[in-house]
């Protein structure tokens, strides 16, 4: 499974999102720190889920980090999150 798919599967399962966009944005970081040939180093994720209701910004981000797991998070160089309830 590609990292994009892993992210998608993990977030679908944890948040049953109304909106989920996982964009591999690695190309726009070509030549910058952390860029890997073949991409899948920089991601932009937009996620809308009822599960974020009542959670602070920090708590929402932490919930996403936890759902992805330490291993996947450490493999990704940059993860930009837009999280809405």
């Amino acid at each position: 499974m590609s990292r994009t798919e892993k992210i998608r599967v993990a977030l679908e399962a944890a948040f049953q999102p109304r909106v989920l966009e996982v964009i591999d944005d690695s190309e726009s970081h070509r030549g910058h720190g952390g860029y890997q040939e073949g991409g899948e180093s920089h991601f932009n994720v937009t996620l809308e889920s009822d599960k974020f209701r009542g959670l602070s910004r920090i708590a929402r981000h932490r919930a996403v980090h936890a759902a992805l797991g330490k291993e996947l998070v450490s493999e990704i160089h940059a993860l930009s999150l837009t999280l809405r309830d």
């Binding site: 910004r57 920090i58 981000h61 998070v73």
Partner: peptide, 25 residues
């Protein structure tokens, strides 16, 4: 911070957030 990414902003000893959160705020 229990936070896997850099940058991280602290104000008065409290963790405020990383790039996405600071941008939104």
């Amino acid at each position: 911070s229990d936070w896997p990414t850099i940058p991280q902003l602290y104000v008065k000893g409290e963790f405020v957030g990383g790039c996405d959160i600071i941008t939104e705020m």
